[in-house]
Design a protein around this nucleic acid. Structure first.
Lengths: 214, 214
DNA sequence: ACAAAAGTGTTTTTTATACACCCATGG
DNA sequence: CCATGGGTGTATAAAAAACACTTTTGT
């Protein structure tokens, strides 16, 4: 068995995939981002986005699933949807050597996991350039709400109250939306319709209507 | 010299970078896409987008430059700007094995090259999944015009006539813009201003104003 | 003068935003 | 019956699109 010539650097940069895993469960007041303490060097113990190296032959969606399941402990069945964001290519973003990162989003359904979940408005400092990834991708996520319906449905669920629609929108955008206008925005989406059911989120005030996808 | 164990598959998919290289030179009536006959298998001799494998430690912009210079014969100094589009991850998009492709755009200045240039409205069939890449990326390019000013300036040049602004817009969008409205759109861009100079593109009709970036 | 193309003025449509006020409910 | 939050109606603003018409040129 000939000695491996590990001294020869690989011809390509490594390519990793980092996931902005979101959750907005029925009892969540805001959208949360899934993060985890790193189990290995570098940045051992530090908080970071769930990430994996790309697998040969895998789709990006598959690798995103793997990152969420293995790093956040979320079962695959609880991943409602995933999608692509942008690629980060700073050569020094990983101290181990040049590593591209393809940023993806994922939305997780309510389930037990080993992840830490930070409100999107209070994400702690993260390892690598993950602070920058979160900062750069946040406007992209905000733009997806109500325009990328796969993303929107995954985040809000198959049926949701108007109150929660307001909360999700407030979490992703800078300032909270006008509830009256958001109501009309939802009414203008063909695949979304309002039901007669109402639900109460506060001890007082009118209960909110339930909306469902058709 | 021990035999190379080429039978061991690499752990990651290869990652290539394919470039939608655009030109819109003073004498071009429409925007053209740079393509080239492949010099190697697979698809030897077939037309394809210029593409390269990622280089370790390189920025995506560097590799995009390399693809345009080596595959299209465009000197580096003639590449006005480059940028990122989206990543394609069909596992079977390359017969040699799983290969991701990061699609980039580039804009080339007038200069001699070895490339074929096809009008964007008449791109011939291409190798790999490059037809799909062009189809998927075209709306993204259309959206960049007049909103991504780096892209817009690279395409139209430092100064350009209103007539050419109309032609470039018609080339990237489906149907031609209303010249009156495009005129106002340009006037609303702070870094763009109209000069007193006029230029004639047709044998008849009023000559068009020249616009410049400030 | 006429045809062709650029550009202006103006209207219309659409979309987004704002805000006054009515509705439903628990205390 | 009042405070609270949901929802409707409507006004306002901004942006986009449409279209009639004027200007500038070569023939």
């Amino acid at each position: 068995m000939p000695p491996e010539t590990d001294s020869s650097v690989p011809p390509q940069s490594a390519v990793s995939l980092d996931v902005l895993a979101l959750r907005f469960w029925p009892d969540d007041e805001t959208v949360h981002l899934g993060i985890t303490h790193r189990k290995a060097q570098p940045f051992l113990g530090r908080l970071a986005l769930p990430g994996v190296l790309l697998t040969r032959g895998a789709r990006l969606a598959d690798d995103a699933h793997r990152a969420v399941t293995t790093k956040l402990g979320v079962p695959a069945s609880a991943i409602r949807a995933v999608g692509q964001l942008i690629t980060f290519d700073e050569p020094n973003r990983d101290p181990r050597g040049p590593t591209l990162s393809i940023a993806m989003w994922a939305v997780c359904a309510p389930v037990e996991s080993t992840a830490d979940w930070a409100p999107l408005s209070a994400v702690p400092a993260l390892a690598f350039d993950h602070d920058r990834i979160v900062a750069d991708c946040r406007p992209l996520l905000a733009a997806k709400l109500w325009s990328d319906l796969t993303f929107t449905r995954a985040l809000l669920g198959d049926s949701f109250s108007a109150t929660r629609a307001v909360a999700a929108t407030a979490a992703l955008r800078r300032d909270p939306p006008n509830p009256a206008n958001l109501n009309r925005l939802m009414a203008s989406i063909p695949t979304l319709s309002r039901t007669d059911q109402r639900v109460r989120h506060h001890s007082t005030g009118r209960p909110a209507a339930i909306w469902t996808w058709t």
